[in-house]
């Protein structure tokens, strides 16, 4: 039963990854790879145990835990970069608006402009 739930969830993530293919190919590809690995490990749990033994980790579940921590860290870095990029865009917009609407003292204005 649990396998069916996990596989269903992974397939939903895969569908989401496909929808993001044009917008962010890197993230989409990474998600698809994670889903692929997840499917293999869910269907063949002994593979995880074998991998853990090869890497010197005691149990397969421990290896999974370490991988999740790593993935969470990468996700945080990705979000952080996106926030910084949004901040830069916001700054550029705010600057453009400020520059478009200067409050100029009357003595600075050209006489012709004052007359018009």
């Amino acid at each position: 039963m649990i396998k069916a739930i996990i596989i269903g969830s992974l397939l939903l993530i895969l569908a989401y990854a496909f929808t993001q293919q044009k917008r962010s190919p890197l993230i989409s590809g990474a998600l698809a790879a994670i889903v692929f690995v997840g499917l293999i490990l869910t269907l063949f749990p002994e593979v995880l145990q074998m991998l853990a033994n090869d890497l010197g980790v005691g149990r397969g579940v421990d290896l999974m835990f370490y991988m999740v921590i790593l993935a969470a860290f990468l996700a945080i870095v990705n979000l952080h970069m996106r926030v910084r990029s949004l901040q830069d865009s916001l700054r550029d917009l705010a600057r453009a608006q400020a520059l478009r609407d200067p409050k100029v003292p009357a003595r600075e204005l050209d006489h012709s402009e004052l007359a018009s």
Partner: peptide, 8 residues
Amino acid sequence: GATVLRHP
């Protein structure tokens, strides 16, 4: 008497 720009 200064010119003023305001960040939103």
